[in-house]
């Protein structure tokens, strides 16, 4: 017999509904100031999405996020793989990465804006920085774990070093790289929202604080909901992609290492 809890997607759906109901009840019966009932926030979601200006705002946020994300992949995966296969490269980059690891990438926003202005370039650059680190880290770990014997036999078959990296190391490290990408994707969203909160120019992060300033609390919470759903949906989509690309590997329950 199949239990209800085994239907995929059912428990998370229940969790969402449970959270909303919990929120609604807390807001209604404990009357916490500044916390409108969930229903009031839900009602505002279509309002935001129907407003062409806001929608455009959100879409351009997403566009920047996607560009920053893919640019980071193109840069970070090769660097990580090289680090994993060469001690010298790893020794070269490791301390530098360790130093910038605890720096909040979104905090660089004011300085970068000073140099590059408030346009797309600054925002994309910050997202690029935010995504790169976890992707480098996981590609590095993945490449490091590739069995030396596999490479020896490839070399014995006459495969050159670049070909080995592309045809042996990359596929073998793919599951771990995918973990990095997944973390990176969540991070891209976080960095995007955060940098918009700091820059206060446009985008979802800006909608949040503008409505906060205007005391439109329903709108604030509706935006939070939209961002939350974006995070969850991106993660689910990516998990599907991971299954398709590297489904043969054990599903890695990844600890989301995420913060801008």
């Amino acid at each position: 017999m199949k239990r209800i809890a085994d239907i995929p997607g059912f428990p998370p759906l229940m969790a969402c509904i449970g959270l909303l109901v919990f929120w609604d009840l807390v807001a209604r019966y404990l009357a916490i100031s500044g916390l409108p009932p969930a229903w009031d926030a839900l009602k505002e979601v279509p309002v935001i999405l129907a407003d062409p200006e806001q929608l455009l705002n959100i879409l351009s946020s997403i566009r920047r996020m996607v560009i920053g994300f893919f640019a980071a992949l193109v840069f970070a995966i090769p660097v990580g793989l090289l680090m994993g296969r060469s001690r010298a490269v790893a020794a070269f980059f490791n301390p530098l990465l360790m130093t910038i690891y605890p720096v909040p990438k979104a905090a660089l926003m004011p300085i970068i804006m000073l140099w590059l202005g408030v346009g797309d370039v600054s925002k994309i650059l910050v997202i690029f920085l935010g995504v790169s680190l976890p992707v480098i880290y996981h590609s590095y770990q993945g490449a490091r774990a590739v069995e030396q014997k596999m490479l020896w036999s490839a070399a014995a078959m006459g495969m050159g070093a670049p070909a080995r990296l592309l045809r042996i190391v990359l596929p073998a490290a793919l599951p771990e790289i995918m973990v990095g990408c997944r973390t990176g994707l969540v991070l891209a969203l976080i960095t995007m929202v955060t940098s918009e909160m700091i820059a206060r120019q446009s985008g979802v992060g800006n909608i949040l604080f503008n409505s906060l300033d205007l005391a439109q609390y329903g709108l604030v919470y509706a935006t939070i909901l939209i961002i939350g759903v974006m995070g969850f949906v991106l993660d689910v989509l990516f998990e599907k992609l991971r299954e398709a690309v590297a489904g043969w590997a054990q599903p890695v329950h990844q600890i989301a290492v995420g913060s801008a």
């Binding site: 998370p12 100031s33 929202v193 604030v220 801008a260």
Partner: peptide, 26 residues
């Protein structure tokens, strides 16, 4: 576990920074 697992699944990938205005308000 039955309550926690789906909650984690939903909440872990949500950008927590978005909750900041809500924390400021409450």
């Amino acid at each position: 576990a039955a309550i926690l697992r789906p909650l984690i699944r939903v909440l872990a990938p949500v950008p927590k920074i978005a909750l900041y205005p809500a924390f400021i308000l409450t």
